[in-house]
Nucleic acid binder design. Structure first.
Lengths: 76, 76
DNA sequence: GGATTATATTCCCGATAGGGAATATTTATA
DNA sequence: TATAAATATTCCCTATCGGGAATATAATCC
């Protein structure tokens, strides 16, 4: 199950789904991931200015892998 | 060609590679992606605090797709 | 070596991320 | 409903992001 990511909202949605599937509360997840509650909430709600390092930290902690690949078809 | 992303440095490296493959200079790429030169440089050098929204903006503009998927446990 | 180009680093500075607690609001459950 | 639980929002506060230009450094080519 591979989710394409275009916006931070996409990431937030994936995180929220995984967290709920795991039966975690926002506070639980924040503690588990080593970030603040505010950050966790902002991230799940798609705030564009969240710091990338922390985002990756959360994704890793929740067991969500991130991949980058070159787009197949020519750009623009 | 699927690159797993764990740190910001991983993303920076992927971006730098793609940009050079495309024969773009840092300033070129920054202008193309609609971000500042400083941001582009910081990002390629793996600065952890860069803003997520801008990073996605750059990846999208350069033709690099991002995917999130649930980790599969026995193996990758 | 020297010239040329690319990248890194520094400058000022307004805007804001994010920590945690408290409060407001939404959602779920009895 | 009402009541609890979960989530969102607000608060104060310091640290720092990021813009673009200028300068320093590194890489490249003849």
């Amino acid at each position: 199950m591979k989710n394409k990511v275009i916006t931070v909202a996409n990431i937030g949605a994936a995180i929220r789904k995984k967290r709920r599937d795991d039966g975690l509360t926002l506070a639980d997840a924040a503690a588990l991931c080593g970030v603040g509650y505010r950050f966790m909430s902002d991230l799940e709600n798609g705030k564009a200015t969240v710091q990338m390092g922390k985002v990756l930290q959360v994704l890793n902690a929740l067991g969500l892998d991130v991949y980058i690949e070159s787009r197949k078809w020519p750009n623009e």
